[in-house]
Design a protein around this nucleic acid. Sequence first.
DNA 1: GAAAGCTGTATCATTGATAATACAATTAAC
DNA 2: GTTAATTGTATTATCAATGATACAGCTTTC
Lengths: 259, 259
Amino acid sequence: MPTGAKSRRVYLSLLERISAGRLEPSQKLPGEEQLAEDFGVSRVTVRRALDALAENGFLTRRAGSGTRVRPRSTAPQQVTMDFSTLLPQLVEIGRKTEVRLLSSRIDQPPEHVARALGLEPGETVQIARRTRSIGGTAYSHLTTFVPARIAAGISDADLSSEPLHVLLERNGVKIADARQSVSAALAGPEVAATLGVPEGSALLSLDRIVRDAGGRGVEFLSGLYRPDMFRLDMSLTRVDHGGGRHWEPAITPLEETPR
Amino acid sequence: MPTGAKSRRVYLSLLERISAGRLEPSQKLPGEEQLAEDFGVSRVTVRRALDALAENGFLTRRAGSGTRVRPRSTAPQQVTMDFSTLLPQLVEIGRKTEVRLLSSRIDQPPEHVARALGLEPGETVQIARRTRSIGGTAYSHLTTFVPARIAAGISDADLSSEPLHVLLERNGVKIADARQSVSAALAGPEVAATLGVPEGSALLSLDRIVRDAGGRGVEFLSGLYRPDMFRLDMSLTRVDHGGGRHWEPAITPLEETPR
DNA sequence: GAAAGCTGTATCATTGATAATACAATTAAC
DNA sequence: GTTAATTGTATTATCAATGATACAGCTTTC
């Protein structure tokens, strides 16, 4: 992403048009001189924005020929979290995903985590930072908080290999339900570095509170995902119900996955 | 958001810590001089970042006293889209939401929209841009594409008042199902202006393809949402199914909404 | 009320981004 | 090939962001 103010504005403006589909794939952009006039900036500034867009894979440039919108087919390998199948956990597309443990420690949780899990004042948690990758590229940055009393038997080696659900259930935890909230966040320097995205790019953010049969919080997950590599899909059906018509999540059995 | 490069970096770095909860609400930050040394920049640059964070509601500053993380209670009015109730459409929290029509026209759709809806080559669509607001503040920017043959009877007045589903069903369309995909995107100048957020901030992005009973696409929605005002919530239950344990969307009847 | 610590404000030198211009290299069309 | 349009590269001048420093004003603490 360009560092300067004007070039950044041009960058975002063009990115907006590309993302919204107003600039079609393979479509030729106006010349640099024309764009400079359109935006009211100099050609140098336009070039900075176009260079950055090209570097981030949105455009292809060729001397003499012009600048074109890169078709989406060039997009990196994708991972989809799908709620329409009975497997809302990670479904791998292509290859399996790999986990890497960045750090783990026992510490006091942030206040909002303690509240969400319903912890006693002063109670500690195991805080683990991990990434999930596909094809060698990290697509998510996960921070998990597990009450220390529950996490007792979970080693760093465990964290590097198995999903946390599995580890918890192996520890005798009866996982009952989870509540997720999806939002968006900017990539700060640390996360940007681990995910290999430019600082200040948009990430999908997902918070998940997992509870056991007794209603006690057993895990708080805070995940950040690269939007170009990760999608959250949902299917809905329109059903009659009582007085009016409503939407309802569609649940497709795994055996007959559509597409 | 700061325009310069270094101040922007400080801004994002602090925002990252606040969002992740590593800087607790009401917690006092190190002094400006200390922060300047930590980040290896001058105090002027730190101030720019802090000023911007304060202006965007993340910090409170008081001369003589210090700078503190603002508790989340000050957050603007929120809207939640909840999949755990039987109303995955918009559920209003507090007041109702208002619609404003920005523009509408009949035109050729972008290629990816035509493909998603399964349109004939050259077929036109009604393209409408709208915002939804709550308490006078816009929290979403919606662009909808409806095949022109279906949208025939839909006027601008209709678009300004009713949800599109209702209008379509009034036109005799039998809506059967929808497929949604959630992601994140940066706010470009246009959208940033209509949503009242700084350019380059992170937005939740939602694409929805609505199909009728015959499997034909009747609506393509591309929505951008302010993450501080809009959340997408989902509840899951852990169920035994066949060989192993799976996650499944929890569906709570409206009559007994939990919390 | 004195002291310490903090934010608010101002100044000036320095560094980096932007503008304006010119020209070279590449490509596509005729 | 020649032409026209395009991107790539370079130079210099101008303007905006940053750095360094100093000091004023507000808060809390003792």
